[in-house]
Each structure stands twice: as C-alpha cells, then as structure tokens.
Design a binder for these strands. Sequence first.
RNA 1: GGUCUCGUGGCCGAGUGGCUAGGCAGAGCUCUGCAAAAGCUCGUACAGCGGUUCGAAUCCGCUCGAGACCUCCA
Length: 500
Amino acid sequence: MSELKVYNSLSRQKEVFEPVTPGHVGMYVCGPTVSGESHLGHARPYVTFDVLYRYLTHLGYKVRYVRNITDAGHFEEEGRQAEDKISNKAVLEKLEPMELVQKYTNLFHWAMLQFNSIPPSIEPTATGHIIEQIEMIKKLIADGYAYERNGSVYFDVKKYATNYDYGKLSGRKIEDLLENTRELEGQGEKNNPADFALWKAAPPQHIMRWQSPWGEGFPGWHIECSAMATKYLGKQFDIHGGGMDLMFPHHESEIAQSTICNHGAPVKYWMHNNMITINGRKMGKSYNNVIKLTELFSGDHPLLSQAFHPMVIRFFILQSQYRSTLDFSSEALQASEKGLKRLWEAYENLIKLQLRSNELGDMAGDKELDNKVNKLVDEFDEFMNDDINTAKVLANMFELAPVINGLKDKTVNIKSLAATTFSKLQSQFKVYLEDIFGLKSVTEADNEKLTDVMKLIIDIRKEARNKKDFVTSDKIRNQLARIGISLKDEKDGAISWNVE
RNA sequence: GGUCUCGUGGCCGAGUGGCUAGGCAGAGCUCUGCAAAAGCUCGUACAGCGGUUCGAAUCCGCUCGAGACCUCCA
C-alpha cells in the first residue's frame, strides 16, 4: 500500500506523513469563535479534519485531536450594536458575555452532532487558559521579543524577523509588512504596525477582563492557540489545520510565538482547507453572504429552494478536494442530495447481498469485472493517501454502484465475482462510507411498529396486484407517497419502502 | 498597490505531459399493469493567443477574466 502524503502549506508541496512520535499523531485545528452562529463556510474545516482524524485513526494511529473554542476577546452578538452601557448595567447583565458564549458553543456542538463529526479529544477554551497565555507572554518579554505599552503587550515582529523567517508560511516578505502604512486604531502604541497584540489592556467598559502583570485586560487572538497547542500537544506536534484565511496573520504569528517560547518550529505539517464560495465569492460575514447552518437545515433562506440534510452537506463537502474552493448553490446541493441517495441505496443493496454471498466461489466467473472491482476498491486507499482525495474515492464508489445494483437485480451474476473480491467490496464500502467519511443514512431510523404496519399494507397491496386490482394498489401507493413513504415494486416481485 | 491562487461540457467538480474521472440536469432505450427505482447508450469540455514537445487541459510566455490574503474571518 502507498503511504500517506499530505500537502504541507509550509513547503507548498505534498510530503510523506511521518509523525513526530511513531504511532501517535498530535493534531490541532482552529475551532470556532463563539460569538455568533456557524455558517456553511465553517462546516468545511470541521468536516475535512474530522475525516482526516477518522482516516488517521483508521490507519492505526493513536490520535490526540485538539480543537479550541475561542470564547475570549471582544465581540458582540450579531445584529446587536455595541450599545453596552456596561457600567450602568445590572450584575445579571454583566454575566452576559459568558451566556452568549455558552449559547453559541451549544449551538456549535449541536451542529457538529448533526454532521456526525466526532468530538475532539480535547476542546480547550481560551478563557480556561488565561494563566498559560500569561505565562507564555512573560516568557516572550523575558526573551526580548515582546514589549509592554500602556498595559498592552505586543510581539516584536521586526526583531523576530532578524533571526527568523516571519512570513514563510503565508509567503509574505517582511519588508512589505514593515512598510505597510495602513492606518488602524491602536497602531500608535506599537513600535511597528506589523507587531501584533499578545495582551490588550481592557478599556473600562470591557466586561471580559482578567488580572495580569500588566494590569486588567484580555489575551490577544493568536496566543491562545500557541498556549493550548503547546500544553496539550507539546513543543512540536504533527498537524495544525484550519482555513486558508487563517494563514496570515493568525498562523504566521502562532509560529513566531511558539518558535521563541519552545525554541523550535511548533508544527510539522500545516494543512489548510480552501473556502466555500457563493457566486465565486468567499462566504464570510464581511461579505454579508453567509448561510447559517440552521438556515441550511431548515431551508429558511432566500437562496435555498429547500431544506438540506446535514449528511447532504457533508457529502457535498466531500465531493471536492479540500484544497479547492467549493462553490455553493442550491442547485449544487440538490445534485449532491440525489447523488448521495443513489449511492446510499447501492450501499444498502450491497449489505443485503450478504445473504447470497454463500453462492460465491474462489474463482471469479467474470475475470474482467472482478479485476475492475478490485481496482476500483483498491484505489480508495491510494486516493486517500494522496492528500485526502475524498472526491476521487466517491467517484470510484459511483462507478461501483451499477455493478452492485446489477448484482441485486440479478442482471449481473453474483458468481462473476470471487468471494474475496465481494467481501472486500463490502467491507471497504462500509469502512469508507461510515467509518472514514462519517456518513449515515438520511432517512429516519426504522420504527418497529411502523415496520409491522408497512408489512401489513404491503401484503394487502400485493394481494390487490395479484388480483389485478390496480385501483386499490395505486391508491395505497399514492396515499403513502402523500404521507412521505415511497413504495417500489422490485423486479423479483418484492416491494420495498422508504421514508422520504 | 503588494503577494498569491484559479479559470474544465447547462450546473457542481476530479485530473498536472499520452490511457479523454464522477455527480446532477438533458436525450434515447430496456425492464414494468402503471409509477418509481435501477440498468444501458449519448453529449468529446478544458478562458484566448503564441511557444516547448512526437504528443498539453496538464509545462513556459503574454492577454483577458475571477477570486483570496495584506484588517476580524473556516
């Protein structure tokens, strides 16, 4: 079998994956800022890296997956202006930031559950690691790479750049960064505009504040990831993931901080997913073009023609390679919905074929077909090893679907395949679809009583059809369709049903 | 303005030098009481222009177009 290769943003090429500690993988993924609702764009990294996590586990690695919750810093609830006349508000009102954070954290967890994303091994919060962050900042000051100014602390990028390569991840030149003359508030107290905040002094009305050696304030954005990744994954760990838009300044700054504190580069493989676009433009709050996950699941958005099941969205994301942009439209999602349905039905047919697997022999009845199936299935691993190409794996599955359906309809003799080929086909479909891709059935789970009722109805319909009483049989089928249950008359005379 | 990326058939989307993915939509057919599903067949795309090469969607150059980052951002 080929070895796993991943695209490393640091080297801009695919590299063979070799963990720092054999058999173990440390993976850190930038989690959500819980100041608002997650949208479709946020779903991509969490699905992408969930699949990577599952795949690494499948390969036998013991993976520690850390994904933070950014719950510190200055933010406001969506749709509400900074009207906080904080000083006059009641104690209850002063607790509000944490309530807000809790609300969106819960919502985020709920969405992840919908997506069938496995919870990370550790999900640290920024507010829970203020001490670690302060300690790290102290170290940076002690080493001469940070300076305090009016209760805030900044990282000295210029100094760092004299000894290290600031910009190597994002491909930026330090000269350009230093001469950037953009006027932004708070720039005045920095030595250099390129410097970034490690600690910010809290203005009087700011609720989220902690005591520090430099006065009351709150941590800068980049330091939390450095502090928490170091704490739980060590000074050097294997994979750091996140969206491409975080490469600069967030990840670049993380590297700088950690490099000073830990005396070495923190991350071996930087992996970045590309953006989800809408009409070719990045989906993002600042573009005012986001579709929230709750809207996606309910269909309640002008751009949506219908509601979409979380599994459809997961499948949609998996149908492209994670480093390409993925253009959203209701139409594209509908295509995914139909595709997933067809693929899943083929998969269910494949599982049911187990009953007939005793008919199989050691020899393939159709050598050519047997070879084709073997090739298509073997390529699953190869494609995944080539920088997690889920799109190609799915394409192969679609190519296998007609074979599977043919076996089921008996237009393809089951003896065409050797027993080993069939069992491999079956097990690899299950492993990939369920264990690695994390997909599951879109239809409702069977209810025992409903199953019994359906058995009865199907029986009655069968009798009617045998008597050529098509008025009755069509009535049953049409009425059920109205309820949302579809009947299919199979080729062998059986009738199958599905809850839409 | 700087840095970078991309431009594939009606839509989405793989693919980085030869073997012309895949999904959805569309057309025809088979099966079927009908329907649905399924199966089979079909469409020969790679922004434009030039170059390298026996051979390019794939490499190089230019032109046009789109986008990302440089500020919070998955």
